[in-house]
Design a protein around this nucleic acid. Structure first.
Lengths: 334, 334
DNA sequence: TTGTATGCGTTATCAT
DNA sequence: ATGATAACGCATACAA
């Protein structure tokens, strides 16, 4: 920039003013300056600017599983919107590991990101300090964390699961199994609650034996499902609380020599491109993944751009998920 | 940091030396300093450091489609390895749009990332300038770009496709269709070439009518597939050159009232979790997605950490993909 | 409207 | 071994 100033025969400050429009500069000088910029091949140094302004035009995005199509679409939406507003996105993945999340949170904080969007793997001192510090806005997505008062975008997991299980009950099923995710997550707890509600609503007694727990990955889901399927009086329908346990469930059904939906009805959380293609076409709870990302980024942008908005109380927006009934949950007519 | 110095009663320079180990500091002072650091709650400001050192400990990752499971796993591997080495990852997605890619490349360059990993949507002046400038290391993944001499990690697309089509031919198919991706991409060209080679090898005459083109997304794949299927003398087997066109293909088959593999055999590029679960279990070409990410990051790290390695000539590593034969490509015994 | 001077938080070069 | 001081490249308050 000093080179540009020299080449254009003006002062440093004038160049800065011309580049940022922070002060009026005569048209003549502007022309000279821009010409000089091209000549010198000047590129504004964002680092130096950051040091001076205290902002990096970068947000930190922390997700629990980047491999999950659910997060993938959300990340995409966030990234798209962020870029449109001049923000870069620094991505971190905790792999559902709270310790990793802490590390990454520190990495992001060190780099002085202007804001955070995080799908937390669990409450940590770092996360709490971050939101309580109040210096950097953070918006939670997908999962709420207890006692953390900050912006958030989640879906109504209770209603979504209730709808799905209600659908199963309406089809005549009385023994409905559940494969839950981790109860330490708000999603896990809420979906479990939705299951209970639907059961009660349908006048079906809750049976602990019918709920399996898949804390990590498809293999865990497989084991939980296999256990359910080996019950003497096995369920005639099963709802899987996430994508991965859904995969495990379908594998277990296949390996048990059972057929879906003839022998057992299935529905699961999280829709994905292929769900509609194979046999059986899978009944799913489709989250508004794109909208979640957009909403989250919008919330963050408000706090970022608008000084008065920074003082606003926490806003949590709950979006609705949609039950997509396909073949896997409805027994074919005989 | 100046506060720390004050609190510990030492000079700024000494604190810096103690923190970075850049100069010997007596144990006594070290103790005082670290205590002061905790007292003050000091956190090193990466921005200021970057301004001084000229490095950001951040790499730019540019992919064409973050929604694609292929990229997803690769991104994950890159991110993991980067973090282990103290690097942050700034993620950009071009959506297969060269113009977007240019914008994002500029965004990353402005932020002074130390290195790039890019799955390019096409050659652009920005990309060329970047590698020819030689100031920042660039490693290409998935796709090579003509005339760009830089590190790269790709797979042997010709061999992979040849293997898959050969498998189809070996099963007795003589009319084998192809749904290609964009020919402007190296992957598109190489996979097409592999198809031609397998045909020639099997003594099957090439028929232009049997190759459809799906440039963007599943819908495009659907159309291309539908056209192939409506041919008077339609193919008895089809190979889809990527995940998305595979989805379109399967939908088209279903909508045409055909059954796979009974009426038509199918194989497609890119494996994914669900491929093995539904009926028909899908025959796929599985890329070593994780290895691609690891290799790419390794290549980049070498250039980043080792001053002498920066002068090394471009290295392109070609990994092998693996054909996973499942049900969709083999006609059941009658 | 334009220029001068100063500081952002580090690291690095020199003395001491 | 430690301390004073000068950059790094930009933005801005203030003076002209």
């Amino acid at each position: 920039m000093v080179d540009v100033a020299k080449a254009a025969g003006v002062s440093l400050a004038t160049v800065s003013a011309a580049v940022n429009g922070s002060a009026p500069v005569s048209a003549a000088l502007k022309g000279r300056i821009h010409k000089a910029i091209r000549q010198v091949g000047y590129k504004t140094n964002a680092i130096a600017r950051s040091l001076k302004t205290g902002t990096t035009s970068t947000i930190g995005l922390m997700v629990a599983d980047i491999t999950n199509p659910f997060f993938t679409t959300t990340i995409h939406a966030i990234q798209e919107l962020a870029h449109r507003h001049g923000y870069g996105v620094m991505l971190c993945c905790s792999d559902e590991d709270a310790d990793k999340e802490r590390m990454h949170l520190r990495l992001l904080a060190d780099r002085m990101v202007d804001g955070f969007i995080v799908a937390s793997a669990g409450e940590t001192p770092e996360l709490r300090a971050l939101v309580e510090g109040g210096r950097t806005p953070v918006v939670l997505i997908d999962r709420l964390v207890d006692g953390l008062e900050t912006d958030a975008v989640v879906i109504d997991n209770v209603a979504a699961t209730r709808d799905a299980v209600r659908h199963l009950a309406a089809a005549g099923h009385r023994r409905i199994g559940l494969i839950t995710g981790r109860r330490t997550l708000s999603t896990g707890r809420e979906r479990y609650e939705g299951y209970r509600q639907a059961l009660e609503e349908a006048g079906i007694a809750f049976e602990p034996a019918l709920v399996g727990s898949a804390r990590f990955g498809a293999d865990d889901g497989y084991k939980a499902a296999a256990k359910l399927l080996s019950l003497a009086d096995r369920p005639t329908a099963i709802f899987a609380c996430n994508n991965l346990s859904g995969i495990g469930l379908m594998r277990a059904i296949h390996d048990a020599g059972l057929r879906c939906p003839d022998d057992i009805a299935v529905a699961c959380f999280d829709d994905f491109d292929w769900a509609n293609v194979f046999h059986p076409r899978l009944t799913t709870v489709a989250q508004p993944t794109q909208a979640i990302g957009v909403q989250a980024m919008l919330l963050l942008l408000e706090r970022l751009k608008d000084a008065t908005a920074r003082a606003l109380p926490p806003r949590v927006v709950r979006l609705k998920a949609e039950l997509r009934v396909r073949d896997s949950s409805v027994r074919p007519a005989r």
